[in-house]
């Protein structure tokens, strides 16, 4: 519930943003990230061929965000130099293109408007929870992890309490590092205690699954925080800017969100990220050990950005192709 003071603050802020058209300004002052109810962005997602792969037969899969309880995706437009089709595989949507080769500089551009809400607990009544108890190849647990979970959670049975105990334990014992591409292997992160979002959430998922609590993996990209976002901006859609979070099952079809790595980075939001998500994010896929449609040859850990194969082998990001996300902030509800 917003206080009258916060409501007025938000209203003045939004009026100011509307008047300035938001471009080139930093609506940073006065916004509390935990209180932002939604963000609406116009997004231009571009995959550019930098250097055509030497192997012939190029397949490109681009993740397509979907409208769900957490976000609305509107006004989708796709520009492609070759014919494309949209596909679905399991819960994920994607644009798929194939050509013998592409020329340097060719681009595939997706334009859409995203309204992302400050999501909390969601209900997926139709979903079977069993599938969320199966660890991916990166999330298996060993005896050390099992002993740690037993020690931390004791005989606690309530999923919310178990979740909070493990959330705090992982955050307290681990260090966050940003500018790397994580593999999200639970056992290695447990030993090494250094990682980024995929490592934090892989370990949390392993520990919860060990306690027979189902956990969903959600994959996306992160935008700047509401308190820091400018009217427009651009960043690479790659493994550095990919972001993951998870939801665990608390009964009656309800799934509880947590973001451990952001809680580590933002201690002021530690309690917030146990049950709420700041809306500076976009979900583009779910799950790990992704199978695309048509099926890819390589192994895909997560699907946060464009995946390309040349001759049935993964192309090289930053050499063969590159992805950019350009955004324009068009609304922020406080």
């Amino acid at each position: 519930m917003l206080s009258r003071r916060d409501f007025l603050k938000g209203s003045f802020l939004l009026a100011g943003l509307s008047l300035t058209g938001l471009k080139g300004i930093a609506p940073a002052s006065g916004i509390k990230d935990a209180e932002v109810r939604s963000i609406t962005l116009k997004i231009t997602y571009t995959t550019k061929i930098l250097k055509a792969p030497k192997q012939k037969g190029i397949d490109i899969w681009i993740p397509l965000p979907q409208t769900d309880q957490e976000q609305e995706v509107m006004s989708l437009m796709i520009d492609s130099p070759v014919s494309y089709r949209t596909e679905i595989s399991r819960q994920n949507r994607m644009v798929y293109l194939r050509a013998d080769s592409f020329s340097e500089g060719e681009t595939v551009v997706l334009r859409y408007t995203l309204r992302r809400k400050a999501a909390g607990v969601l209900t997926y009544a139709e979903d079977s929870t069993e599938q969320y108890l199966k660890p991916s190849e990166w999330e298996r647990w060993d005896r050390s992890i099992a002993e740690f979970v037993d020690r931390v959670t004791g005989r606690e049975k309530d999923p919310l309490k178990v979740g909070r105990l493990l959330y705090d334990a992982i955050i307290d014992r681990s260090r966050y590092v940003h500018e790397v591409c994580g593999r999200g292997v639970s056992t290695l992160f447990f030993e090494d205690k250094v990682g980024r979002c995929d490592e934090f959430h892989a370990l949390f998922r392993s520990m919860m699954m060990y306690r027979k609590i189902p956990v969903r993996w959600e994959q996306g990209v992160a935008f700047p925080y509401p308190s820091q976002i400018k009217g427009t901006g651009e960043f690479e859609a790659d493994c550095i800017n990919a972001h993951s979070w998870v939801r665990f099952y608390i009964g009656d079809g309800r799934w509880f969100p947590v973001d451990l790595s952001e809680a580590k980075r933002r201690p002021d939001l530690r309690d917030h990220y146990f049950g709420r998500l700041v809306p500076n994010r976009m979900k583009v896929s779910s799950g790990r050990g992704i199978m695309l449609n048509p099926q890819q040859q390589g192994i895909i850990n997560t699907f946060a950005y464009t995946y390309m194969e040349a001759g049935g082998l993964p192309a090289i990001y930053g050499h063969n192709y590159k992805n950019m996300i350009r955004y324009e902030l068009i609304d922020m509800e406080v």
Partner: peptide, 10 residues
């Protein structure tokens, strides 16, 4: 290294 990491390519 691996294929999907821009820093690695650099």
């Amino acid at each position: 290294t691996e294929n999907s990491c821009h820093y690695c390519t650099q």
